[in-house]
Amino acid sequence: MLRRVLSLPAGRIAVAILTVVALLAVLGPVLAPHDPLATSARTLAPGSGTHPLGTDYLGRDVLSRLLAGSRVSVLGSLEVALTALVVGVVPGILSVYLGRAFEWVTLRVVDTLVALPFLLFAVAVIALLGNGITQAMLVTGVLVSPLFYRVSRAATLTVARSQYVEAALIAGASVGWVVRRHVWVKVLPPIAVALAQTIGVGFVIVSSLTFLGIGVQPPEPTWGGLLASDLGYLSYQPWAPVAPALLIMATVWACNLLADAIRDVSGEAGRALVAHRRLRAGRRGRTEPAPTGGAS
C-alpha cells in the first residue's frame, strides 16, 4: 500500500511532511538550539541568527519551544488514533463473526458512545484517572472509536457476504483465516483513511486543549500553548503565531492528503493502478532489445 501511495504526488508530499513531523517529535528536543524553558531579557525579539523565530514574552526561544513541543502533539494525536483503532476496529470486525449477542452488545455500546456528551465523559474520566494530556487523549480516542467501529464493520459485512469468502469457507477456511486473508486487506484501506483523518483531528484536538491550557501545565512547551502565548502579544509581534499555526495546519493538511491518497490507491482504483503499472512494465520489456547469447 505504501508503494502505491508514494506513486501519487499527493501521497509523496503527505508522507514527506509527516516524516518531518515525526522526526521533529523524536529529535526535536535534541535539535533545539536553546533550552526551551530558559528565559532571557530579550523578550518579544524578532527573528535573528541566535533566535531564528524570535523570542516570546518571557524571552524564551520560539524555535526551541516549537521543536520541544512537537513530541506532545504527535504523541497525543497518535494516542487518539490508536485508542480509536483498538477500541473500534477489533469489535467492529468481530461483530460480524462472533454471533448475534456480541453484535448486539457492541452496537449498543457504540450507540451509547455516540450519544455521550463529550465534556461530561471527559470530566468523569479525568476525575477518575487524573488531569493530563494522556487521559484527555484517551477520552477523545474512545469517543472517536464509533467511527472506526462502523467503518470496519461495514467493510467486513460487505466482504463476509461475498462469494470468494464462501469459496474459502467451502475450501475449509476458519474465521481467522478468512479475516487474515480476505477481510483484512479489504477493511484496511477505509480504516487507513479514517486513521489518517483521525490523526489530523487528533492534532487539532491536542492543539486546542493545550491552547486552552488543558492537559499540559505551563511552562511545558506545546504547539497550542505557543499559539496561545503569542496571541496575547499580537500588537507587538503580529507574525509570532504564524510558525506554530503553520506547523499545525501543514500537519493536519498532510494527514488529510494522506487519507485522500490512500483512498485513491485502494480497492478498484488500486487494482487498476497495479494493472496499469504491469502493462507499462510489459511495454518497456517489449521495447528493450532482446538479449543475445548467454545461458537460457
Binding site: 462469494q163 470468494y164 469459496a167 474459502a168 475449509g172
Partner: peptide
C-alpha cells in the same frame, strides 16, 4: 465440516467466477 472440507473431497464451482475469486489475490 471444516475438517471434511479441508480434505477437499467435494468442491464447488460458482456461477460467477468474478465474484468467487478474491479480486486482491
Amino acid at each position: 465440516w471444516r475438517r471434511l472440507r479441508r480434505r477437499g473431497t467435494v468442491q464447488y464451482v460458482f456461477q460467477d467466477p468474478l465474484r468467487s475469486l478474491d479480486p486482491d489475490l
